[in-house]
Deep mutational scan, measured.
Amino acid sequence: MISLIAALAVDRVIGMENAMPWNLPADLAWFKRNTLNKPVIMGRHTWESIGRPLPGRKNIILSSQPGTDDRVTWVKSVDEAIAACGDVPEIMVIGGGRVYEQFLPKAQKLYLTHIDAEVEGDTHFPDYEPDDWESVFSEFHDADAQNSHSYCFEILERR
């Protein structure tokens, strides 16, 4: 099963200049909980913004210009990325925008964090048809001392 995991502000903004323009430790914990011990696929820009392999996960970098870091697996196509994951129950696609666009048609599940923030962004989550998805989990949280904005975790499964 292919799943996408993303944090989205208003207007589906997911990033600005290779960074997330908010401070939500709870979302980072949600991300870790849902990706640990699963292969993660990301684009080169996302890889560069993280700066290191995510521990406890097979890191697969999709790029037309593969790098030389041998701590991760470099691939040039969506099919190659899927094959590099091996026989696993769930593959997690973690961004960025172009990689989400490439995998959305193949995805069966979306793990979304909806952030109540209007922020400037240069990267967006692809538009998706809500009628194609069923919400199977939703959990709202107010902003607090650690988390700069209110947010809602949601899991959607393709109908």
Rank of each mutant, 00 (worst) to 15 (best):
S3E: 03
L4T: 01
A7M: 00
A7L: 01
L8G: 01
V10C: 04
V10A: 14
D11Y: 02
R12G: 02
R12M: 15
I14L: 15
I14G: 00
I14S: 01
E17H: 02
N18Q: 14
N18L: 14
A19K: 07
P21N: 04
L24Y: 02
A29Q: 12
F31I: 00
K32F: 03
L36V: 03
L36F: 15
I41M: 04
I41C: 15
M42S: 05
M42R: 02
G43V: 05
R44M: 08
R44G: 13
H45S: 15
H45P: 15
H45M: 05
W47G: 00
W47K: 08
E48H: 14
E48Y: 14
S49E: 04
I50S: 01
G51S: 11
R52W: 12
P53C: 09
P53N: 13
G56S: 10
G56L: 07
K58S: 11
K58G: 07
N59W: 05
N59R: 03
I60N: 01
I61R: 00
L62S: 01
L62A: 04
Q65W: 15
Q65G: 07
T68P: 15
D69P: 11
R71A: 12
V72Q: 06
T73P: 06
T73F: 10
T73H: 13
W74E: 01
K76T: 13
K76I: 15
D79N: 12
E80S: 09
E80R: 07
E80W: 05
I82T: 07
I82W: 05
G86S: 08
G86V: 08
D87C: 06
D87L: 09
P89C: 09
P89M: 14
I91H: 02
M92R: 00
R98V: 04
Y100S: 00
P105C: 10
K106S: 11
K106R: 10
K109L: 13
L110T: 00
Y111C: 05
T113C: 07
A117R: 08
V119C: 15
G121T: 00
D122K: 00
T123W: 00
H124L: 07
P126E: 03
D127G: 13
Y128A: 03
Y128P: 05
E129V: 10
D132K: 12
D132F: 10
D132M: 08
W133V: 00
E134L: 10
E134G: 09
E134T: 07
S135E: 12
S135P: 09
V136T: 09
E139V: 09
E139A: 07
D142H: 12
D142V: 11
D144N: 06
D144A: 05
A145S: 08
S148H: 00
F153I: 06
F153C: 07
F153L: 12
F153Y: 06
I155S: 02
R158E: 03
R158H: 07
